[in-house]
Design a binder for these strands. Sequence first.
DNA 1: ATAAATCTGGATATGCATATCCAATTTTAA
DNA 2: TTAAAATTGGATATGCATATCCAGATTTAT
Lengths: 128, 128
Amino acid sequence: MISQTAEYALRAVIHMAKCRESSLSTRQIADATEVPIAYLSKVLQSLTKAGVIHSHRGLKGGFSLVKPPEDITVYDVINAVDPMKRIESCPLKNTSHGKNLCPLHRRLDSVLEATENAFRSTTLAELL
Amino acid sequence: MISQTAEYALRAVIHMAKCRESSLSTRQIADATEVPIAYLSKVLQSLTKAGVIHSHRGLKGGFSLVKPPEDITVYDVINAVDPMKRIESCPLKNTSHGKNLCPLHRRLDSVLEATENAFRSTTLAELL
DNA sequence: ATAAATCTGGATATGCATATCCAATTTTAA
DNA sequence: TTAAAATTGGATATGCATATCCAGATTTAT
């Protein structure tokens, strides 16, 4: 349902939420979350660019959450590394309904919508 | 959310549901659903093995649904080609909760469950 | 019987998500 | 000022989902 990358990102930010006080290095997060350190490094870069976490370079550097866990949703994290794609238009060309969704894709998109809503309404604080 | 393969399988069986009377060749289905014919061939083989459709070899052969569209669910079709995997146990080794799910994976699995229920309760007949 | 149409199954190719590696840069502490 | 610790970003490798190709087997119509 969610990509491996999104799973890793969620594990990382949840661990950071548990250690709110200090800035954590890539290695510390990798050890705690069992994510391959080199790959985690890329994931943390994505989260940084998306503004979910802060990075601090140099000795004693590391990463920390930008906002308190109550204000960060699962949706925010997933979107930072692997954005959900809703079905905007029917993928078939030769169709009678034009760009409107056919029954199949209407149904699939409504499931996507429900999933998106579930992610939007879950904060990191609820996952500690 | 669902794989490309599952999407192709759904397009195929829905088209077959629309042409219930006759047996359709791979080419006919490929043309109607805009699925690459060689790949569709593999998808139809999976659906056959799973007992969702019948295959008829030889001249005038092709594929047809085993059951009426009212009795085939989206879940049946997806499961035939790309089974949904619920989260049975926490993917982390070093965890305090043992094989029980942590809050994150409990939440993710409940979303999976909701998705599974949506697919189980939708029949092909509703998608025509 | 024969030819044509069609499925079957194995081998192979392609593309993207996942994963690794390393040199360069930045920052802190002594 | 120097050394150590850490992020950054580019290059590269790996694995799996997706996609293609083709020779063989099966069935129908004539």
